[in-house]
Design a protein around this nucleic acid. Structure first.
Lengths: 180, 180
DNA sequence: GGTTAATTATTTATAGATCAATAAATATAC
DNA sequence: GTATATTTATTGATCTATAAATAATTAACC
């Protein structure tokens, strides 16, 4: 998108995007409303014209990201034997296209703001139930355990991306005998 | 421990313990040095007599907790077929005896303070290498993948404990056919 | 089509609160 | 009465949020 088009995208959207990037990198507390404003090119108090509080802004980002994740897991399709892999791929695609949002969601559980905690709780519960239900529908045995493992892999990916520890990535570890 | 004995435990230890509990519950940013001081029963500036900064205090807690975790994974012993389970049990024991510290370590990767990030990076790298190496030594195939999975389970437990989502716990999901 | 009025977009100024950190003073124990 | 433990007083920085002022845009009328 050219700088000119960027100008025309409405401010609320610009603020949401800048906030997603900053919150994902610096977290809730170390990102100031002034940082967000500066990234967009407006003054700090103007942010409050679109979001009634910093918390409301964060929750708006979190909600958008959550819906994207749930949608991805809901729409991935594959026969029983490849369903988990297909859903993993859907997650990887999302990580490639909306990295900020995804990492934000995965780390939000560690943000001790009550409203954020509550939202995270519902979100992870939703994801778990959806994934489990899809595994169930596909006739995969022990869908609950599979769904837990699936979330565990997602958390590991977020950890690995956040701390720059690629060796933690599950999918890079296949065929490790080829080198000592 | 009685309140009188508590008095005699040296202040530095008291501060460390209070900080562990508070940081684990409220995180780095929402825990103030005044909160820590109040929990111990001293004045806020006195905390700085023992730790040169709030960050130094947090890192001291993190270091203690990290060593405990690494030690637990290093000393758990079992024959090949039960090694992973034994190490999981060691983690569960630690969670029971030092819940605050453990949750703090598992969530620290989401604390965007550079020094904390660096410490977390080394810590997770150490844990991964140690676990992998133990699996290797025991002759377990694909030790790297197993170690990643192991960390993923730990993260899932931390998530489940933090957000009060017991259904995410891997070990509760066994035998789920008994009730629909 | 140019002037004015109304509406919307955005800024300036600033209040009010919170916190980490320093330095100097004081109490306590030996 | 010296050393150690702890407090008082305070500074300076940072940040969210509000309210009032101004600039820019659109609409209306003649």
């Amino acid at each position: 998108m050219s700088p000119k088009e960027e100008e025309f995208k409405n401010r609320k959207t610009q603020i949401l995007e800048a906030a997603a990037a900053l919150f994902a990198e610096y977290g809730y507390y170390k990102t100031t409303t002034a940082d967000v404003a500066q990234a967009v090119g407006v003054t700090q108090p103007y942010v409050f014209h679109f979001f009634k509080s910093k918390e409301a802004l964060y929750l708006a980002v979190l909600e958008q990201a959550s819906q994207r994740i749930l949608h991805a897991f809901s729409t991935a399709e594959a026969p029983r034997a490849q369903l988990a892999e297909a859903m993993g791929q859907a997650f990887a695609d999302l990580l490639a296209t909306h990295r900020n949002e995804i990492l934000l969601v995965m780390m939000s559980f560690a943000t001790p703001e009550p409203a954020v905690r509550e939202y995270s709780q519902r979100e992870f519960d939703n994801v778990y139930e959806r994934v489990k239900s899809r595994f169930e529908q596909a006739g995969i045995p022990e869908p609950g355990i599979q769904a837990s493992d699936f979330i565990g892999k997602g958390l590991t990916i977020a950890l690995s991306e956040t701390l720059n520890l690629p060796k933690l990535l599950p999918w890079n570890n296949r065929h490790e005998k080829s080198c000592d």
